[in-house]
Structures are given as structure tokens and as C-alpha cells.
């Protein structure tokens, strides 16, 4: 605010400046700004507090908090022991690998399929393009829970060939299936994510593609490019910000998902990272400090993804609006 004020009010007219406009820095502190900053600091503290609390708990041994409570100074000292225990006891690298094996192919497949649909529906005029778009969008409205019983039985009775397995130490990744069914397979989880996320991705990508002027596509046709080539060489590069934003979102969605894995996987060793956290809980007793450490570690990959794709993410949010 002060920057705007100083930009519009030249210094020779400073005396004429109305009293209600903010003064330049260095000429005293206005109570309004004090209140504003006090408010901002309070809000920041409020938002950071739970995170801080988790970090603080995760650094304390359970014996300390059992004896002294969580609201106390660390009598047992602070250490990274909980992180170490979680990393080894819960087999963390292994479960990270499980999640990546599900998330990465799903995200790629969703973006490919959704961009194809969005491309066909926005860049070309044909009889049912709006209808198709609406059907894909309407898919978002279907709550996955309602189809879980039939889906479970479909998965149990769909034969899938088993080929070979990719063995990397303890981690064995079966191509397609290791029990000749869709049930209890990585590929089954990938497929259902693709099915359920493609609708949303299509919706977002088509909105973005509508902002690409048709002249670009038309001139490509004039130059003799066929449809797939326009999609891959012209439209997809233009959509990079939207694709990156979608990739970030989809990664987080699928990373956090627990529902499909709960119903459609039965093997504990195939479950995603979020379930490794549950492995730390006993039937009755839970070491909450250890779980805090685990939760913080499990949150790392989505944060990394966000940091690396942040530029694209924000570009994706704003680019469309300025073009329109």
C-alpha cells in the first residue's frame, strides 16, 4: 500500500497529501500497521503451531512424554531417534517405493488420456464434443464409495495374465498380476485412479485449452500436421503450465489416497506409504511421538513435488485468466 502511495504522490506535493493516506516509512509507526502485523504474526503462529508441535513431539522419546506430559520441557533431551526408528522399523524406503510405483504411472497415464479428450473436445467442432466433455466432468460427481461393492467383485473376477516380476531386493514388482486377478495388484489401483481422476483432469485441461486460439491448430492443419502431431507437438507444449499444475494436484490426491488400497489390496507389503504409519500402531498402545516423526517423513514427497513444480503450479493458476 505504501509503495502505491509513494508512487502516485510526488514528494513536492507531500504537504497536500490527505491525512488518511499512509505516510512513508521512517516517519513513525501507525497503529493500524501495528495491529495488522500483530494479526499477521498471530495468524502465522496459529498455522505453524500444529506443525511445530508435531516436530517437537517427534524429537522427544515416549518415556519422557508419558511421565511428564506433552506440555513440558524435554527432560529426556531431544534426539532424532524416532526418525531413525521409523525409517528402519517401518521399512520406510520400501513403502515409498510402493507409493511411487502406483503414483507415477497413474499420473502420466491420466495426463495423457485427459489431454487427448480435452484436445478433441475443445480444438475440433463435432456433434457430441460438449456432451462428451459433460460426461467426463459428470464423472467427478460420482462418489467412489457407491460403486465399491460391484467394483470389488469385478476386480475379483477379472483375469489378468501374469508375466514376469521385477525384483529389486525385497521389493518385487509384478508386471500386470501375480495372482492372475486384478484384485490385490498395483495395476488394479493404478487403473482405478486413472478412471476416477481422468474426469477432473479433463475438466481442468479443457478449460485451459479453450484459451488456445483455434488459429494455431488451423495453421498446423494447413501445414499438413495430422491430429496426433498437433496434439503432441503444438497443444501439449502450450499446456505445460496446466499439465504441471495437474501433475502436482494428482500426485497429492493419489499419494493421500487410502480408500482404494483399503478395499482392493489385501497384501500388507503392497500398501502405500500412508499405511506404513498405521503399522506403527499396536492394537491398543500407540507411540504418538514415533507416529509424529512418521507423519512428518511421509509428508516430505508431496512438499518436494510442490517446491519443484511451484513455478508451474502458480503459472497454471494465473495464465489462463490473463489470456481470457
Amino acid at each position: 500500500m505504501s509503495a502505491i502511495a509513494s508512487g502516485t504522490a510526488p514528494s513536492d506535493r507531500a504537504a497536500l497529501r490527505p491525512a488518511h493516506l499512509p505516510r512513508r516509512a521512517g516517519k513513525g509507526i501507525r497503529p493500524g500497521r501495528v495491529i495488522l502485523h500483530a494479526f499477521l504474526i498471530a495468524m502465522t503462529a496459529l498455522w505453524v503451531f500444529p506443525l511445530f508441535w508435531a516436530v517437537y513431539s517427534s524429537l522427544r522419546p515416549i518415556s519422557d512424554t508419558v511421565k511428564n506430559g506433552y506440555v513440558s520441557w524435554p527432560a529426556g533431551g531431544l534426539s532424532l531417534d524416532n526418525y531413525r526408528t521409523f525409517w528402519t522399523e517401518a521399512d520406510l524406503p520400501y513403502f515409498y517405493a510402493n507409493t511411487l510405483v502406483i503414483v507415477v504411472p497413474s499420473v502420466i497415464l491420466i495426463l495423457l488420456l485427459a489431454s487427448m479428450v480435452a484436445f478433441a473436445c475443445t480444438q475440433f467442432s463435432w456433434r457430441f464434443n460438449v456432451t462428451v466433455l459433460m460426461i467426463f466432468t459428470a464423472g467427478n460427481l460420482l462418489p467412489p464409495q457407491v460403486i465399491i461393492v460391484p467394483l470389488y467383485h469385478i476386480y475379483l473376477s477379472t483375469p489378468i495374465p501374469s508375466f514376469t516380476e521385477l525384483d529389486v531386493g525385497r521389493f518385487a514388482f509384478p508386471f500386470f498380476s501375480d495372482n492372475n486377478l486384478l484384485y490385490d495388484q498395483y495395476i488394479g489401483i493404478m487403473l482405478i485412479h486413472v478412471v476416477f481422476q481422468t474426469g477432473f483432469a479433463t475438466f481442468v485441461l479443457s478449460n485451459y485449452m479453450k484459451t488456445i486460439s483455434k488459429e494455431i491448430t488451423e495453421s498446423a492443419i494447413m501445414d499438413g500436421a495430422h491430429v496426433l502431431r498437433i496434439w503432441w507437438n503444438i497443444v501439449l507444449p502450450l499446456c505445460r503450465p496446466a499439465l504441471a499444475a495437474m501433475a502436482t494436484l494428482l500426485f497429492t490426491f493419489i499419494y493421500n489416497d487410502f480408500f482404494w488400497a483399503l478395499i482392493l489390496l489385501k497384501t500388507g507389503d503392497k500398501r502405500p506409504i500412508t499405511s506404513a504409519l498405521n503399522n506403527l500402531q499396536g492394537e491398543f498402545f500407540s507411540n504418538n511421538n514415533l507416529i509424529a516423526a512418521g507423519a512428518l517423513l511421509a509428508a516430505v514427497p508431496p512438499i518436494l513435488i510442490y517446491i519443484f513444480l511451484q513455478k508451474q503450479f502458480i503459472a497454471g493458476l494465473t495464465l489462463g485468466s490473463t489470456k481470457g
Partner: peptide, 21 residues
Amino acid sequence: VNTVDHGTFQNQITSYLQGTP
């Protein structure tokens, strides 16, 4: 041995027993 955490095991017992336990 297939180990599944206690809470999940109880939650999915119905689908587990009807599937390929």
C-alpha cells in the same frame, strides 16, 4: 506371512475373507 496393520485388518476383514485370503 501377510502382515496388515491392526486397524486396517479389522476394517477390511469382510472384503479380505471374501476375496483371496
